[in-house]
Design a protein around this nucleic acid. Structure first.
Lengths: 152, 152
DNA sequence: ATAAAAGTATACTAAAACTATAGACTTTAT
DNA sequence: ATAAAGTCTATAGTTTTAGTATACTTTTAT
């Protein structure tokens, strides 16, 4: 059940972009180079990923000197599920339970196929988390985790 | 988050083997050929998969005429999680949240990494389902689904 | 106007993983 | 002895992944 590097890097980049700029509170505009250094990602590979995310409408960009990428919508309106699906495709472990990209898996009777019933649960469990976690939820969890560390 | 063919076929085969033989109620001993025909799987590929499952201790086999494979333990004591891990490896979407095969994912601080926190939830959700669903649970769900169809 | 910064777009490649096939060997019931 | 079954290992073909390379285009500071 592995997340691809493409998916991992894309999620990391989006989370990085959701972190407010140090001075003002608006979401940061950042350059590929900056993100790639911070997250240790090959800049050219990251470029592709950000472009894909841009074409999917999750990022906007500004060209030229002083340009960069920034979130297309507020962090609270972008979910990890949206990002994941753009980069790694459907969430479902098996095609016959996919909402996005259903395809028969060839079992004699889908309605009573035990594997399908269980994998449907798995799909729903994953989608529940990913579709109900926005980038701003991730920010909140990070903050909470940081505070816990301080208290300890 | 795709299940590999190897994993899919292995799970299907185990579910098939958990179905009680038509006459008596003990778990069936079945031959590769029989399973491969019923589930439409290349017999040679299935052979490898069953062998892997056997070496992992989930199946036993009998060689020679009248031989075949059968479950190593009662269906209630074999979970889908066990089968999955043998064939497809760890359940975790990202190495740094794996219980089986932990490895650092290289983020500066794992304790406060937002991606890691969320993916930990995903891992737990998947593992919860797979580790708490035994082959006999699958049988029960199939039966229930069949009854529902009849009622309709 | 122009040069430099930055994004856009495709094509390509090396390596790994996945799916499947082949063939020689071992065991067992009859 | 032999045929039916599983065992084991190698390998071939395909697909996916991760990353590079290259050649644009757009924007903006000067």
């Amino acid at each position: 059940m592995r997340l691809s590097k493409r998916g991992e890097y894309g999620l990391r980049a989006m989370i990085t972009l959701a972190e407010p700029a140090p001075k003002n509170d608006s979401p940061a505009m950042m350059q590929i180079k900056e993100i790639s250094q911070r997250e240790q990602i090959s800049p050219k590979f990251l470029e592709q990923i950000l472009l894909t995310l841009k074409n999917a409408g999750l990022l906007h960009s500004k060209m030229g000197i002083g340009g960069g990428y920034y979130l297309a919508r507020p962090a609270s309106e972008i979910t990890l599920g949206q990002i994941f699906r753009v980069l790694d495709g459907p969430v479902a472990p098996i095609k016959c339970v996919s909402q996005m990209a259903y395809e028969s898996c060839g079992c004699p009777d889908e309605e009573t196929c035990g594997l399908r019933l269980v994998m449907g649960d798995v799909r729903n469990a994953i989608a529940d988390i990913l579709d109900h976690t926005s980038l701003s939820d991730v920010m909140k969890r990070q903050d909470r985790a940081r505070k816990n560390l301080v208290i300890k």
